[in-house]
């Protein structure tokens, strides 16, 4: 009964992983059949010495920071506030969660228009605040990544919001009441009682967010295709570009494996954290 799944698992996950490891040692090309010439460690040397590899990794980490922090903090705040209201909660849930079900393609189309030069809502909006020459949101290397991160926050905050709302259900009513009787105001209660009790949810939300952000591709590919001047190009796009645009499969495999190691590292840290939390309980 395990067999059908195991088969798919081997063919589409384990097999490709092994191939990635092997191809990293060859000058494999998309345009020629077979593995190509044996390259030894030259791909690894080239990748580790390639400024573009480090820059895309830097971009990826920068994007991860830019999205994870607001996505965790904002969703927590939203959930804390929304948790106080029973009526109307469906409206907040709809407003914040609905974007999450949209395809990345739709999100990109929306925000390319919002960020458009001269025509977009975003430039118009900052003009209300007295900025006469708003930046080109997606065309200025200093702003492009921030703009994409903001669009991503809009898109995915609902998922974390819902996780936090669920976490809040676990905070027993008595805790609230006890704290209130002790004379704690709403703000103190949230800060000293509720938030600490959400520790597990916060770990979960943060780690899921970091892993998801490390794999960013879609919205960047569609909105800026990595530009301007490579300022938004993430690691996954380097793999896509070298593997499929340029056809250098060997090199791209090496990058894949290194990115895999980074993501694996984050996952293992998560496991360690969960383990420790379990022991403490």
């Amino acid at each position: 009964m395990l067999l059908p799944f195991a088969l798919f698992y081997l063919v589409f996950l384990v097999g490709p992983l092994i191939y990635t490891v092997i191809a990293g040692f060859f000058d494999t090309s998309l345009l020629r059949s077979g593995l190509g010439d044996f390259a030894g460690l030259s791909n690894y040397k080239a990748v580790l010495g390639d400024a573009e590899f480090w820059r895309t990794l830097g971009n990826t980490l920068w994007f991860t920071v830019l999205t994870t922090v607001p996505l965790v903090v904002l969703s927590l705040v939203l959930a804390l506030l929304a948790d106080r209201f029973v009526r109307g909660r469906w409206f907040f849930r709809f407003a914040f969660f609905a974007p999450f079900v949209l395809p990345s393609a739709v999100v990109s189309l929306l925000f390319m228009f919002i960020y458009a030069d001269q025509l977009g809502l975003a430039q118009e909006a900052v003009k209300w605040f007295g900025v006469d020459t708003p930046p080109s949101w997606l065309g200025d290397p200093d702003w492009a990544m921030l703009s994409i991160a903001a669009a991503t926050v809009w898109w995915t905050v609902g998922f974390n919001f819902v996780l936090y709302l669920a976490g809040l259900q676990d905070v027993p009513r008595e805790v609230h009441e006890a704290a209130a009787i002790d004379g704690a105001g709403p703000w103190q209660r949230i800060r000293h009682v509720v938030v600490p009790m959400l520790g597990r949810t916060t770990t979960l939300v943060t780690v899921l967010q970091v892993i998801a952000s490390l794999k960013v591709f879609d919205q960047i590919y569609m909105m800026t295709s990595g530009g301007p001047d490579g300022s938004t190009r993430p690691s996954l796009q380097l793999i896509y570009d070298t593997g499929f645009v340029e056809g250098r499969v060997g090199y791209a495999s090496t990058v894949s494996l290194l990115l895999f190691v980074v993501i694996l590292f984050v996952s293992l840290v998560w496991f360690a954290l969960v383990r420790r939390a379990e022991k403490e309980n």
Binding site: R32, A39, E52, V249, G250, Y251
Partner: peptide
């Protein structure tokens, strides 16, 4: 130079 140093896929 970086571009040129890459092995050509074709």
């Amino acid at each position: 130079r970086t571009l040129a140093s890459r092995p050509a896929p074709v």
